[in-house]
Computed example of a mutant assay.
Amino acid sequence: MRGLKKQRRIQIVVAAFAALAIATGLIGYAMRDGINFFRSPSQVVEEPPRPEEVFRIGGLVEEGSLKRGQGEVIRFNVTDGGASVAVTYAGVLPDLFAENQGMIGTGSYVNGVFEASEILAKHDESYMPKEVVDALKEQGVYQEANGS
C-alpha cells in the first residue's frame, strides 16, 4: 500500500511538470509574432536582418530626407548619428512627426529599405523612447533636452 501511494505521488508530479512545460510552450508559441526587437540604424547596417523578420527601428528623422511620393507613400531616412537607413511608409504620419525628431517604426528590412507598417513619433517636446536615447548615446549624438 505504501509503495502505491509513493508511485501515485511521483506520477502526479511528473504530470504537473509535463503540463507546465506544455503551457509554457503554448504561451511562447502564441507570443512569437507579438515580440518585436528594437534595432538602431547602426545595428541594421552592420548586420541586416532577414526580410521576413519584423522588428522596430528608431532614431532621428534625418534632416532633408523627408519626401512625399505618389499617394500616401512617404520616404525618409532614420539615423542614430552613426548610420542612416532608408524608410518607406504608406499611410498617415503622426502629427508630431518631423525632421530631427525621434521616431520608432515597426516593419521589415527588404532590399536595403525599411518598409514600415507603423510609425510612432514622440508625444511631447521632451520625451524620447529609452531605446532611441540609448542608441543615440552609444553613437555620441544624444543631447539632453532643455529643462531636464
Rank of each mutant, 00 (worst) to 15 (best):
D124Q: 09
Y89W: 03
D33R: 10
Q143S: 00
P129Q: 08
S84G: 06
M128H: 05
I74M: 08
R32P: 10
F76G: 06
I119G: 04
N77L: 12
Q101S: 11
K67V: 11
F76I: 01
T24Q: 13
D134N: 08
R39D: 05
V78A: 05
V133W: 02
F38V: 07
N77I: 02
G58F: 05
A15Q: 09
I35G: 03
V110A: 02
Y142S: 00
A23Y: 11
L66P: 15
G58Q: 05
K130V: 11
K122S: 12
I35W: 13
I57T: 03
E138R: 03
E47T: 15
A23C: 13
M103S: 07
G140M: 01
Q43S: 13
V54T: 08
P41W: 03
T106G: 08
R68E: 14
E115F: 06
T79R: 02
A16V: 15
G71M: 07
A98S: 14
D33T: 13
Q139I: 00
S42P: 02
P41T: 03
A15L: 14
E53L: 11
S40R: 06
Y89M: 01
G91K: 06
E138H: 02
V45W: 04
Y29W: 12
G107H: 08
L136G: 03
T106Q: 15
E138S: 04
P129E: 09
E52T: 13
K130Q: 07
E138I: 00
V14Q: 12
F55Q: 01
V61E: 06
K130D: 07
S108L: 10
I27R: 15
S40D: 02
L96S: 14
G147Y: 00
G28W: 08
E118G: 08
E99D: 08
V113M: 05
G140Q: 00
G112Q: 06
F76C: 06
E63S: 14
G140E: 00
F114P: 09
N146V: 02
E99M: 05
N111G: 11
G112T: 03
S126L: 15
G64Q: 08
G71A: 09
